[in-house]
Amino acid sequence: MSNEHTLKAYGRKDEGKGASRRLRHAGRIPAVVYGGGAEPASIQLDHEPTWLAQQNDWFYASIITLDVDGKSEQVLLRDMQRHPYRQLIMHLDFQRVKADQKLHVKVPLHFINIDKSPAGKSTEATVTSEQNDIDIVCLPGNLPEFIEVDLGGINVGDTVHLSDVKLPKGVELAHAIDDAHNPAVAVARNTKVEAVEEEATPDAGDVPASKEEGGTVE
């Protein structure tokens, strides 16, 4: 279950591009809250604390308590628009959540114990993550901030698939696993073997002219 996280927000009445531009110049972020059986509400948040908050995993995959003018609402971030090159959040979308309604959320994966694994201790292997997050479904009260993937037993040449990930209680995958959908989440590649294979594969410039397409043998 996620820890409690609260963001301070304020109501706003002015809408439109001009109003949003003025808010950004004042160090505020225009945002909207929708869903939960209530009308959408336009709000604003202070940019600096929100910018700091969005550097954490929980900002994207946890229930957030929005304190809007003293009234609390449980929400989940659904969209964030950033400036293309400045450190600036342009707009936020939050969805209200209900305790009895399941959520479909992307949750980050945290890989642990790589350095303790046989592959991690080997000089001939490189352990890489193939997925940084997974789609899950759960009730708000069961939503984890992240899911740990223990790679303490991974050997050189092993592949850890989505079906190998242990999910917390009350959490299920958003998509069923079958032969067509069971992607790798981590791989321990044998770098020595790959290096030998690359050396054994000739470049186009190394192929004799007689073997190239259209070449002749004298």
Results as ranks from 00 to 15, higher is better:
87 Q>V: 06
31 A>F: 02
137 V>G: 06
21 R>T: 13
98 K>A: 12
5 H>M: 06
186 A>G: 03
107 V>N: 01
180 A>H: 13
163 S>P: 03
165 V>D: 04
156 V>T: 09
13 K>Y: 11
87 Q>R: 13
149 V>Y: 08
63 I>C: 01
128 T>R: 10
46 D>R: 04
46 D>M: 07
86 R>P: 01
199 E>F: 13
36 G>H: 06
9 A>M: 11
91 H>R: 05
164 D>R: 02
157 G>H: 04
20 S>V: 07
162 L>G: 10
9 A>L: 07
213 E>C: 00
22 R>T: 07
87 Q>L: 10
47 H>W: 06
75 V>Q: 05
166 K>I: 13
29 I>C: 01
161 H>I: 08
102 K>V: 00
182 N>G: 13
35 G>W: 03
69 D>F: 11
151 L>A: 08
34 Y>D: 06
69 D>Q: 12
211 K>E: 14
197 E>Y: 05
4 E>M: 08
138 C>A: 08
104 H>T: 15
50 T>F: 05
205 G>K: 15
73 E>Q: 14
179 D>V: 11
68 V>R: 01
20 S>C: 14
206 D>G: 04
159 T>C: 03
185 V>T: 07
108 P>Q: 10
7 L>C: 04
196 V>I: 15
17 K>R: 15
6 T>F: 02
128 T>Q: 14
133 D>P: 00
59 F>Q: 08
100 D>G: 02
53 A>M: 15
24 R>M: 09
106 K>H: 14
160 V>I: 11
216 T>F: 11
10 Y>E: 15
139 L>R: 02
6 T>E: 15
93 D>H: 07
127 V>F: 09
119 A>L: 08
91 H>T: 03
102 K>S: 11
152 G>F: 11
110 H>V: 11
44 Q>D: 11
9 A>E: 05
142 N>I: 00
90 M>W: 03
179 D>F: 03
119 A>Y: 04
196 V>M: 10
93 D>P: 01
104 H>M: 12
82 R>P: 01
67 D>M: 06
181 H>E: 05
141 G>V: 02
182 N>I: 09
199 E>V: 06
39 E>A: 12
28 R>L: 14
116 K>W: 02
166 K>P: 01
183 P>E: 14
38 A>E: 14
218 E>M: 02
79 D>V: 00
75 V>R: 05
92 L>W: 00
62 S>R: 00
90 M>Y: 01
163 S>T: 10
133 D>H: 14
62 S>P: 10
13 K>M: 12
216 T>I: 12
171 V>T: 08
78 R>S: 04
25 H>S: 12
81 Q>V: 13
202 P>I: 09
28 R>T: 02
43 I>W: 02
33 V>C: 06
49 P>L: 03
140 P>M: 07
76 L>F: 07
152 G>E: 03
104 H>C: 07
